[in-house]
Design a protein around this nucleic acid. Sequence first.
DNA 1: CTGAAAGCGCTTACAG
DNA 2: CTGAAAGCGCTTACAG
Lengths: 379, 379
Amino acid sequence: MGVKSGEGEEPGRRVGATLRRATLREVAAEVGVSVATVSNAYNRPDQLSEELRERIFKTAGRLGYAGPDPLGRSLRRRRAGAVGILYSDRLSYAFTDPAAVMFLQGVSLAAEEAGLGMLLLPGGPAEGREAAAVSEAVVDGFITYCIDHGDPLVGSLVGRGLPVVFVDNPPEPGGAPTVGVDDRGGARAAAEHLLNLGHRRLGVVSFELGAGPVGGLIGEERLRRATHANTLARLAGYREQVEAAGVPWSAVPVFECRENTPEWGRRAAEELLRLRPRPSAVLALSDQLAFGVYEAAREAGLSVPEDLSVVGYDDVPEAARTSPPLTTVGQPHTEKGLLAGRMLVARLEGREARTTERHKTFRTRLVVRSSTAPAPEGS
Amino acid sequence: MGVKSGEGEEPGRRVGATLRRATLREVAAEVGVSVATVSNAYNRPDQLSEELRERIFKTAGRLGYAGPDPLGRSLRRRRAGAVGILYSDRLSYAFTDPAAVMFLQGVSLAAEEAGLGMLLLPGGPAEGREAAAVSEAVVDGFITYCIDHGDPLVGSLVGRGLPVVFVDNPPEPGGAPTVGVDDRGGARAAAEHLLNLGHRRLGVVSFELGAGPVGGLIGEERLRRATHANTLARLAGYREQVEAAGVPWSAVPVFECRENTPEWGRRAAEELLRLRPRPSAVLALSDQLAFGVYEAAREAGLSVPEDLSVVGYDDVPEAARTSPPLTTVGQPHTEKGLLAGRMLVARLEGREARTTERHKTFRTRLVVRSSTAPAPEGS
DNA sequence: CTGAAAGCGCTTACAG
DNA sequence: CTGAAAGCGCTTACAG
């Protein structure tokens, strides 16, 4: 573009920059043309002579004007040029979860295709603040990730009247487009794999189940009050398969972690491995947690998979590189983000439904590596 | 908040939502008050009677009005409520680099503190498009990450006249605040460690050096035309230390990778390990690349560290968990992001310089784990 | 090829 | 406690 933005090439510039950005109006006045013409110089080069356009850019450069202010333009054009991303938890947690990061990467692919920015909203349980963020976000639409059923944010979101795509076990409010995964089926496959290997003493390392005091082995009542959709689906899948094998669900200890980190996985496994009889296999709701289970096993002098089988969930890249390589449930994180992004872009560009389905549930698949083995004798 | 946003509680709402969002003006007309009063109902509850406020919210709910439009508000208030993040490369690449992700996490911490959103700009070499993204971003300021010296984007950025914080080997344009790391010192420490262990046949696995045809073993000329600041600093550190040990730099093969992924690290190492005499140690510019070197070594039947020592860079979490645990150069990724975010917020809130220094260079530190060992006999 | 006018949706002194 | 007026910075038909 011919937009001048060099530094200090004109003596007058520094002053202008120090004070306040020049405006379209000021440039117009200085050149002696109307604001429409200056606007055209930037937006419709064919609407004015090359010579005048050059003169306008020169004056703009001198005044420290670097082109139309995005805010004014956005208001007038009624488009913000960005998609808002709403995460279930504090935004900073999203970056510690490799699965969430891969999802965001997928969205970024779609955003790049469409030339849109991604606005990550400060989320989390900061009471009211996230609602403010939602109602103040300058975006053209939203993508939500792992939002709970009944989360009050959904109300604020829908209230904005902007297109929304809900990702991962979504509440499907008013028929909005959704992208999800067969979480329950994935969990079932994980449990089935262990049961087929002869394991009967299982332990589960779970995410947070919902609001309230968290952490530690949990009972029926807490399980019943769970609200986190992903967690619920996976636990339901484990349970279904376990019971189908004739093992009572109440015999399976479930440890609830406060955060999805290896550190919490380690704590959980430490506790599970202290139980007698000791579990011969652990189902972790994520690979991050499973990595922590590895640590705890090592510290307890148990080897994986000979003494303890471990199954993760997510199939993040590290799962293939860790030692031993982790058996886990794979799901297409990046594709989820990409599809959600494209669905949103399609709606923004007014070509809906035709090119994209409105609801998509991706399949999960069990990836068997080396962290699982037949149950030890007599277990 | 008292903002109504439920779905379909009033028969009239659906119609309004289907057509177009109601505006402040329409609500005011419907209630029979001025727009100022409706605005006050949302922004200054003390400026009107509770009873009138309730009536306004009720009518707003009926019309499908969910509160003031962020764009109008932002224009009027002259603040966007978001910080823009500009990455050196395509935005989607940022999510594949654990170091970049940790950096983003740090920024998100600062953004959350301040109640700001993070706008990730579509970047990369899409010719002109990124400049458009910069000049159209609705933000209050920018943070750049790993931008090259002389990148034309810097011009567009500075032209916006908004506060900017430059992170990682920044071009320091016009005394703007910077956050960096002693990359050169870190690289020196890595090389020194290997040299102290007796290694004399080293190989380097490098990032891309700049624009142009990329990939493969490279010569002096390409090294000279390098523009990527991080890469340059690290290579300079290696070189310095190598030459200090009396080894000519020209004797150290450097492989340039197109992407910062284990896959490219593997390719690089495959080639390096084919050289005769074979390197006894590899310096990788990132842990991601080092993980790929592990793979190549394994495939070549070499064990780390007995046959091949490997040093990474970044100390991402996986480095401690991988097998063998990776010797690497640690740097405070999250802290860099957090500090940069806070520096920017400080400027936005008009309290500069007092609370924060304007330039910060974090120290790196060598983390010695188990991927390095004394050079094999006779090498 | 250029300009006058309307308006995107809102907030903020200020006056009453 | 409420309202009239100005204006944030811009773009877009439309008329000339």
